[in-house]
Design a protein around this nucleic acid. Structure first.
Length: 348
DNA sequence: AAGACGGGGCG
DNA sequence: CGCCCAGTCTT
């Protein structure tokens, strides 16, 4: 049985001494700036704080207020989000900003939950951090900390939420939420937890078991799908023919015209089909690009092509890492030709 | 309940 | 190279 008041006091005093100073934690505890907290919470979904910091500054500089965000063209929002991944977050952020400019910032959990891109975690975070509402967050850190504290190998969502609700400090809900997440991120880490520094070590079932990292058990993951595709580069690294990707994968971003190889399809046939769609004339192979994402491993065969289609300035468009890699192939090829001019007499 | 959705960093 | 990250939305 866990002594709740002692545990709360231990974690909160650790947090007051060792909590992180982060750019979205400006202002009074429980009364943080709602816009800054909201943007941070969206940005940090499935994104580690260390990496989010850079993007956060860039985004806040581009859109210092919710009005600025709401009034911006979607393309500018995606450009500011470029490289961050999960681009539906940026599209939803933009949509929600328009709603907020109309109706004002929601002031409670239910109001936040109704906004696009805001789920239970984000609604609880903003409500507690910016509006001092007593809502416990449930994220990857909370899940790991509580699974270890109680020695649960397979914590379900409901299990975590129930424990988090029971432990939440009614006096300092925002600080409590930040404290659990800080503990998970800096002390109760996935691989090598620093149990000697942990303010909760005396209460921890996982530590008592001798193998704290066994909690929680690793999640089973879907296999990575291997995919092959053909793309055409019409233009150069600065100006090229770009298309807007629809729907799911990299949806909303711009990119080189691309077509996935179906089963049994050859690269040549797909190149032909792609060029036919564009009314372009296929050229030579520039090279291959391999790109790994959580759920896919893509091998992209990039060909030069010729066409009169309008070209766009690459620097103004929001592109995925995959497309940036593909665009670099042309320069890499030119440099290798320049270095060894006798290997190939053709012009580029 | 399960799958889709990015990208990087660390062991 | 596998695992995980301040999750959410769709089917």
């Amino acid at each position: 049985m866990i002594a709740v008041p002692e545990l709360r006091a231990a974690l909160l005093s650790w947090f007051d001494a060792s909590g992180r100073e982060l750019p979205w934690r400006l202002g009074t505890e429980g009364a943080r700036d709602a816009y800054r907290v909201w943007v941070a919470e969206i940005l940090l979904q499935q994104t580690q704080v260390a990496r989010g910091l850079h993007y956060y500054d860039r985004f806040l500089e581009a859109f210092p207020t919710v009005q600025a965000l709401a009034e911006a063209p979607t393309e500018a929002v995606l450009k500011a989000w470029e490289g961050c991944g999960y681009y539906a977050r940026a599209r939803n952020l933009h949509r929600a900003a328009k709603v907020i400019v109309q109706n004002g910032f929601p002031s409670d959990y239910g109001g936040w939950l109704a906004l696009p891109g805001v789920g239970p975690y984000t609604a609880a975070a903003v409500a507690s951090l910016a509006f001092a509402e007593g809502r416990a967050v449930n994220d990857g850190n909370v899940r790991r900390v509580l699974a270890r504290l109680y020695g649960e190998t397979k914590p379900t969502d409901a299990w975590v939420q129930a424990r988090a609700d029971a432990l939440l400090s009614p006096v300092r809900p925002g600080a409590w939420n930040e404290a659990v997440m800080d503990l998970g991120a800096t002390v109760c880490t996935p691989k090598a937890p620093r149990c000697a520094e942990c303010p909760l070590s005396a209460h921890c079932a996982a530590l008592a078991s001798g193998t704290p990292t066994a909690f929680p058990a690793p999640k089973v993951r879907a296999a990575v799908r291997k995919v092959e595709a053909v793309a055409v580069l019409i233009g150069d690294e600065r100006e090229a023919v770009l298309e807007r990707r629809g729907g799911g994968l990299l949806g909303g971003l711009m990119g080189l015209p691309m077509l996935e190889l179906g089963p049994q399809q050859t690269e040549a046939a797909v190149l032909e089909e792609l060029c036919a769609r564009l009314g372009a004339c296929p050229g030579e192979l520039l090279g291959q690009v391999r790109h790994s994402m959580t759920h896919r491993q893509i091998t992209l065969h990039v060909y030069a092509a010729a066409s009169a289609l309008p070209r766009q300035t690459v620097a103004d468009a929001a592109l995925s890492r995959l497309d940036h890699k593909a665009l670099k192939l042309l320069r890499a090829r030119q440099e290798s030709l320049f270095a060894a001019p006798f290997t190939d007499g053709s012009s580029v």
